[in-house]
Write a protein that binds this DNA or RNA. Structure first.
Lengths: 332, 332
DNA sequence: CAAAATTGCGCAATCGTTTGTATTTGTGCG
DNA sequence: CGCACAAATACAAACGATTGCGCAATTTTG
């Protein structure tokens, strides 16, 4: 079965394609009568506009590209849902790609989106991304670029990020309030804004309450479960710590597992807090305290910024999304 | 900065656009020398082909639409990764949409994909989907349709599904082997193939080993955590059960939680098995036995079937993907 | 060496819409 | 009735790439 075009409708109705086009767009230049007639016939014939032809002609597309490191993280899939929540009703579609945390894939994804002439790109950088030429190209091509979570400040345009500093501050200060004194921080790659900010929040809390920050308690590049598992065994005695604040829940789970084999009296006399509030956090026993980040909200804001940018007002700002401390059994 | 087109390259090189087009496509009708020259210039000018124009002219697009109930289920996001793994290297892009388990959204998604003239649609039906006119329309329009997981047999084309029967059989027979005799099955909506098949597998195991199937032990529409939590309290004594096989891990987790408040001696004298092997299954204490389903593999196969269909050989078959029983502490 | 085949490229139509500019038809007013 | 003017529709040129066909120059063939 061949696709029906406006020309088919035009022929059927004895008018020209331009009239059909305008009628379907509810243009006042065609009479109400013809508009109705056209719409009725269009429906009858099962007409589906060819968006590619339309985009080509208009020089702009209603497809928005989105690049995330991985789709199977709750955080990211929630963001995607938030984005869709705003974008779909506004008539846009989402073209989603994964970078798999690789710069190469990210570049390929950007190119693919550009070739598809998306109306804009929403992106969270991969951990590998240490150069942003590919994204500068997007900006230079005048394609709206909205960054979220892992962002690069050198690129112009809206950035939507968690209030990581406050989150880390809350996590740390709650551990302190519970009486823990030697709190280690298992962080990620310091070059990435989110981890740098969490370190900042951690330090702020320590400085405020204990006065002195022991830099030796901040350990980098511990974000996986395995890393958490191994590191806790290595450092628990060596550094004489009585609590850990992890920059991610997966690492926290590694610590959680590691603690089982150690003499540490967890959770009574050893504290643990994660970041991200993954679904499993509350399922553990003892349940894991964590920082809840509002993915949907980040997505919604990113989408709103995208629509604004498409409509001509690109805000070169950083929008902070509040986080929340979730206290559970892993902190007495 | 304006986008560069083949016409721009043509002018720069003093040839015609057709030559550029053919050169970039490595067509033997243009000399190797010109081909090299053109490609060099294209790269130099930062040329990115306009895929919309190309698709419009060729009458086909390299964009594949994919509709999943929700993106934030590990099962589905793994499938998406599997699909990408095959499709991206083959030069296709994925346009992903969520139905949010609503028929309405699903129909809208299908329409949107059709308007975007995708080259094919890969879909898992929403729970609400009780009519498939919208998908029949896809088939009628000659757009390849590949179904996976939740499928409708009435629609022609490839279907990629878990071996649900074997999975349920394994779960149940392992409970039986451990000595449990009154095993309840918490199922989903029986009208959906996956749940119907799991019931079938459950019955097969019971029939083989116990002989008689007690239909009263099969409870429908229990797939959420809350439903599992409430149901176990209601039925544990009433039906005198000593084990539960849930058609999903979330319901199993609800049962898990519910058991804590009950006098049941879990896991020593009460068995529990889920389905899906969600990441949290192994994190629980006691850890949850479950059926592991290979999402990536389902995705890969679906993608392969899609490519085959695009290339003209549409297989009207059902491809079964093996599952695996993961024995953990929740079954003694 | 002339005829035929091959090579390399240009011409122009086309995909389905959109949109600026005609052109036709209809209305109001003096 | 005739003219200005508005309303409704038609015409045609784009958007950027692809591709069948044609034409010249070059090479092969008998």
């Amino acid at each position: 079965m061949k696709k029906v075009t406006i020309n088919d409708i035009a022929k059927k109705l004895g008018v020209t394609p331009s009239t059909i086009s305008r009628a379907l767009a509810d243009n006042k230049r065609v009479s109400q009568a013809t508009r109705d007639k056209v719409k009725k016939m269009a429906k009858e014939m099962g007409y589906q506009p060819n968006l590619m032809a339309s985009s080509l002609r208009r020089g702009k597309s209603d497809m928005i590209g989105m690049i995330v490191p991985r789709i199977n993280r709750h955080f990211f899939s929630n963001i995607i849902s938030g984005v869709e929540e705003i974008l779909n009703p506004a008539g846009y579609s989402l073209l989603i790609m994964q970078s798999h945390e690789e710069l190469d894939s990210e570049i390929k994804a950007v190119n693919s989106l550009m070739r598809n002439r998306v109306g804009g790109i929403i992106i969270s950088l991969s951990v590998e991304t240490n150069t942003v030429d590919h994204l500068q190209g997007v900006v230079d091509a005048n394609v709206p670029l909205v960054q979220f979570d892992r962002v690069c400040k050198d690129l112009k345009g809206p950035k939507v990020v968690n209030d990581n500093i406050t989150g880390a501050y809350l996590a740390t200060s709650n551990l302190l309030k519970s009486g823990f004194k030697r709190i280690a921080h298992f962080s990620g790659n310091k070059n990435i804004n989110v981890y740098a900010e969490r370190i900042q929040g951690y330090k702020k809390a320590i400085a405020e309450i204990l006065g002195e920050v022991d830099e030796a308690l901040i350990l980098e590049d511990i974000i996986t479960r395995d890393a958490g598992f191994e590191t806790i065994q290595k450092v628990i005695n060596e550094k004489e710590i009585d609590a850990v604040f992890c920059a991610g829940d997966y690492a926290a789970f590694g610590v959680f597992e590691g603690l089982k084999g150690l003499k540490a009296d967890f959770p009574a006399n050893f504290g643990l807090v994660g970041f991200g509030n993954e679904p499993f956090a509350e399922m553990l026993h003892p349940s894991l305290s964590s920082i809840e980040q509002d993915g949907r909200q980040i997505g919604r804001i990113a989408a709103q910024e995208m629509i604004a940018a498409i409509n001509g007002d690109l805000h070169d700002i950083e929008r902070l999304v509040p986080v929340q401390f979730i206290k559970r059994e892993s902190i007495k």
